[in-house]
């Protein structure tokens, strides 16, 4: 070793390329490539999972579409899967129920979520922000069944008592709880995008004499709009795919409320229908396939929303340039 350092010969090791060519070290090369292939295969599991999910849900839903047709499913509000000989599978009321509670939740969650994100990114000092973030995280971590439990055993009796309702499990109850569940998602994504807007825009706005509210409402939030819309869509996804809470808290009456704005009536969502009825359905019956069809619709919804968020987040990243 010492001899090599003191030798007068030119350092041949430094002049040569660092990586060995396949011919020089075929064993190592083979190992590397094989390793890569194995890694790719294992990584492919998630691709495989997505494919399998689609294949199996579609396969089980297909007999339903074949025998009933899409028009009946989407054109009727009559969901009577157990009726003797007269089973009807109109999914309109279920789809409406899902969208209804989701919309109700968003009306509450979007302003609160965005305002909270604004507080975290622009108003409070860094230390407070570090203290509030865990609260948001814990709110996101509480299992949905615990939210449902709270909705049924604490919130529902309170509503029944103080609002004079006939039942505490209704669209309002589930909308409020869904809002609480969607807020963490909205806050974290919106906060990231507000953060990414960068100091320059804010400082320019302040330099022009704008107040903080004006800066935020007219400059920062418009600049971060892609990310904020993505946050709302993600919150929507969380609300629309939520099962346990709506199953427990929405009352599960398969109807479109009339008048439509009456939130105190019971509704039933797609997710709750699957959760509630799959257990009692004989395998292979039309009802069984119909539930898979409902699942397929949910899957399609979430896929579309997912692609939308990816597009939006992609644009947000591009428009904010180097700050993302």
């Amino acid at each position: 070793m010492t001899q090599a350092i003191h030798s007068e010969k030119p350092a041949a090791g430094f002049t040569r390329p660092l990586l060995l060519s396949p011919a020089q070290d075929w064993g190592g090369w083979l190992l590397g490539e094989a390793g890569r292939a194995v890694l790719l295969t294992i990584t492919g599991t998630s691709v495989l999972a997505v494919l399998l999910i689609f294949v199996f849900i579609i396969r089980q839903a297909w007999p339903f579409f074949q025998s009933q047709g899409l028009t009946e499913a989407l054109g009727s509000t009559k969901w009577y899967p157990q009726a003797q000989g007269q089973a009807q599978f109109g999914m309109l009321a279920l789809i409406f129920g899902s969208l209804y509670v989701t919309a109700g939740a968003l009306v509450l969650a979007v302003p609160i979520g965005i305002l909270t994100a604004v507080v975290l990114s622009d108003i409070v000092p860094f230390r407070v922000r570090q203290a509030v973030k865990p609260i948001i995280e814990i709110l996101a971590a509480i299992p949905s069944v615990a939210y449902g439990f709270f909705a049924v055993l604490v919130l529902a009796p309170l509503m029944q008592k103080h609002l004079g309702l006939s039942t505490g499990t209704n669209a309002l109850n589930s909308a409020v709880m869904l809002a609480i569940m969607a807020i963490p998602t909205i806050v974290s994504v919106a906060e990231d995008s507000l953060w990414a807007v960068g100091r320059e825009l804010r400082e320019a706005s302040y330099a022009c004499g704008a107040t903080r509210a004006e800066t935020l409402l007219k400059v920062v939030i418009p600049a971060a709009h892609n990310g904020i819309i993505a946050a709302v869509v993600l919150g929507m996804m969380r609300a629309i795919g939520e099962t346990m809470l709506v199953w427990m808290a929405s009352g599960n009456a398969c109807q479109i409320p009339s008048p439509w704005w009456d939130l105190t009536q019971s509704v039933r969502t797609m997710t709750a229908t699957i959760a509630g009825e799959m257990g009692e359905t004989p395998k292979g019956s039309t009802h069984y396939h119909a539930l898979f069809a409902v699942g397929l619709m949910l899957l399609t919804f979430s896929l579309v929303l997912n692609l939308a968020t990816e597009y939006l987040l992609h644009r947000a990243k591009r428009s904010s340039g180097g700050h993302a």
């Binding site: 998630s46 999910i53 099962t243 997710t271 899957l299």
Partner: peptide, 16 residues
């Protein structure tokens, strides 16, 4: 695919 998997509603996982 990872993002799609993350967005699949939990009840659909149950069905699958």
């Amino acid at each position: 695919c990872v993002n799609t998997l993350a967005g699949v509603p939990s009840i659909v996982f149950g069905l699958f």
